[in-house]
């Protein structure tokens, strides 16, 4: 096998990203969809850190990854609050049944 380099990390991140998208598209439970979103964000973060390590940009990539983590935390909090609200409203969190936007 090749010496482990930038490409390896990027491939891992690409696969992780696709798995995240798969989770988002297939799961019915809103919390599971959130897990998918976290996977996607992690994939993006791996890219940032990998480029920061291999492409001579300094630590800017790591800084961005840090900010993404913060944003993910804020996003998770808000999203779960919304999910709780939806649960109160519909007594379930299966997002394929919540399609009132259509009407």
């Amino acid at each position: 096998m090749l010496q482990v380099g930038l490409t390896h990390f990027l491939v891992v991140s690409a696969i992780l990203f696709s798995l995240g998208v798969y989770g988002i598209v297939t799961r019915k439970n809103a919390v599971m969809v959130l897990m998918g979103i976290e996977l996607v964000l992690n994939a993006a973060n791996i890219n940032f850190v990998a480029f920061s390590r291999f492409s001579g940009f300094g630590l800017g990539g790591q800084m961005t990854a840090l900010f993404v983590i913060v944003l993910a935390a804020a996003e998770a909090a808000i999203a779960l609050a919304i999910v709780l609200n939806i649960y109160k409203q519909f007594t379930n969190v299966n997002i394929d049944e919540i399609d009132h936007l259509k009407d």
Partner: peptide
Amino acid sequence: LAADFIAVVQIMVYVGGILILL
């Protein structure tokens, strides 16, 4: 990837925070 601090933050925030939240 030589990003020790990000790794620690990852564990603290994601595992300690977001996962618990989920």
